[in-house]
C-alpha cells in the first residue's frame, strides 16, 4: 500500500471499471470512472482543492492566517469537498445551501465544520447562487470562490481528469458526464478534443428548469460563466435531459454491475446507454461515463428500497443532481 502524507493527496487518480453489461448494443463498451472514490466522496474534491490552491497562489487566501472566511453556493458536493479542504487548511466556510437537499449532505457539511446558510428550496441552485452573490457584495471580506465562474474548476479537469481518462482508455470515442456548473465537461471535453479531435462529448442534465418556480421570466435564467467562457455550445456534441424516473431506474440498474452510486450517476449512465444506442449496428465504440459520487448520501431518498413511483415523486422535489 502507498502511504500518503495528507488526505488531500488521495484526490484524483480514480479507477475506471467496465460496465458494458449495461450496454444496449453489442460492440459498444461502457466504462465508468468512479469519482466517488475521492476522499470526501465526489468529483468535487478536485474542484474544491483546485479553487483553494489557486486562491492561495494568487494571494486571495493566506495560508496560516486566522479569521479567513470562504463563501460558496452549493447543493452539496462542492460544499462538502470545500468543507473538508477548509478544515485541513484552517479556513472557515459558509455554504449557501437550498433547503431541499438530502439530509445526508447537510450532515456531512456539519461534520466537516461548515456553517450552513439556507436558501429557498423552490428556487433551486439559482436561488443559492443569487443569495451567495448578494452576501458576497455585502461582505467583501469573505472569499467568494464561485465555482460557476472560477477557471480553476474546468482547469483541474483539463489537467487531471481528462489526462487520467485518456491514459486509462486510449481507445475512447465518447465522453458522457452531467452538466452542472459545466466544469467537468468543459475541462475534460477540451482536453479530449485537443488530443482526439473526433471524440464526442455528451452532456446529461435533469429537467431542472421544469420545477424551479422562483423565476419571474426567462430573463432570470442563468448560464454558468465557465460554460460561456469555454464556448460550451461548440464544445458539446449532444445535450440530453434524463428525467427522474429514468435516473432512478438506472441508479438501480448500476447495482447489477456492483455499483452503488448517486442518483446523478443513474442519469449519466442512462445518457451513456442512449449514446450507445445511437451507434450504428456493427460499429464499435468506447464510452466513458463519469460517475460523480456514491449512493451513501442518497439512502434517505429510498431510491433503492421504496416504491419507484413514490421515489420519483420525492425526487422531483429534491435536488439530487
Amino acid at each position: 500500500m502507498t502511504r500518503y502524507a495528507s488526505v488531500l493527496d488521495l484526490i484524483g487518480n480514480t479507477p475506471v471499471v467496465d460496465v458494458s453489461a449495461l450496454s444496449p448494443k453489442p460492440g459498444v463498451t461502457i466504462l465508468a470512472k468512479l469519482e466517488g472514490r475521492n476522499p470526501a466522496g465526489s468529483v468535487k474534491d478536485r474542484v474544491a482543492l483546485s479553487m483553494v490552491d489557486a486562491a492561495e497562489r494568487n494571494g486571495r487566501l493566506i495560508p496560516g492566517q486566522d479569521g479567513q472566511t470562504l463563501l460558496e453556493p452549493s447543493s452539496g458536493n462542492t460544499g462538502i469537498a470545500l468543507a473538508m479542504v477548509c478544515r485541513l487548511r484552517g479556513y472557515h466556510l459558509k455554504v449557501v445551501l437550498p433547503t431541499n437537499v438530502s439530509p445526508e449532505r447537510r450532515q456531512l457539511l456539519v461534520a466537516f465544520g461548515a456553517e450552513i446558510i439556507d436558501s429557498p428550496g423552490n428556487e433551486g441552485s439559482n436561488g443559492a447562487v443569487r443569495l451567495a452573490q448578494s452576501l458576497s457584495t455585502d461582505h467583501p471580506e469573505w472569499i467568494f470562490l464561485y465555482q460557476y465562474a472560477n477557471p480553476a474548476n474546468p482547469l483541474v479537469h483539463y489537467t487531471t481528469t481528462g489526462p487520467e481518462i485518456l491514459a486509462d482508455v486510449p481507445e475512447i470515442t465518447h465522453f458522457v458526464a452531467g452538466l452542472g456548473t459545466s466544469g467537468t465537461l468543459m475541462g475534460v471535453g477540451r482536453y479530449l478534443k485537443e488530443q482526439r479531435p473526433g471524440i464526442q462529448i455528451w452532456a446529461v442534465e435533469p429537467p431542472s428548469g421544469e420545477t424551479v418556480d422562483g423565476l419571474r421570466n426567462l430573463d432570470d435564467g442563468y448560464v454558468p460563466p465557465i460554460f460561456s467562457d469555454n464556448d460550451g455550445e461548440k464544445l458539446l456534441d449532444r445535450r440530453v435531459i434524463i428525467r427522474p424516473r429514468e435516473s432512478i431506474e438506472w441508479t438501480r440498474r448500476l447495482t447489477e454491475v456492483g455499483l452503488f452510486s448517486g442518483l446523478s450517476a443513474g442519469a449519466v449512465v442512462a445518457g451513456a446507454a442512449k449514446c450507445a444506442a445511437s451507434i450504428e449496428d456493427g460499429q464499435s465504440a468506447t464510452i466513458v461515463a463519469l460517475i460523480a459520487d456514491d449512493g451513501w448520501k442518497y439512502l434517505s431518498t429510498g431510491a433503492w428500497s421504496d416504491d419507484l413511483d413514490e421515489v420519483v415523486e420525492r425526487a422531483k422535489a429534491t435536488i439530487y443532481f
Binding site: 462542492t78 465555482q147 421544469e210 423565476l215 435564467g221 442563468y222 454558468p224 445535450r239 446523478s264 443532481f321
Partner: peptide
C-alpha cells in the same frame, strides 16, 4: 437539446415531444 440538432431549423416529426425549459443554475453536485 435542439441547439445540437440544428437549432431553430431542427425538424419536427409527428408525435414528437417538445420541451421548453429555462436555463437555470445546475451545479447541483
Amino acid at each position: 437539446d435542439v441547439r445540437y440538432l440544428g437549432g431553430v431549423d431542427a425538424l419536427i416529426a409527428n408525435d414528437d415531444e417538445i420541451t421548453l425549459l429555462p436555463a437555470v443554475a445546475g451545479g447541483l453536485w
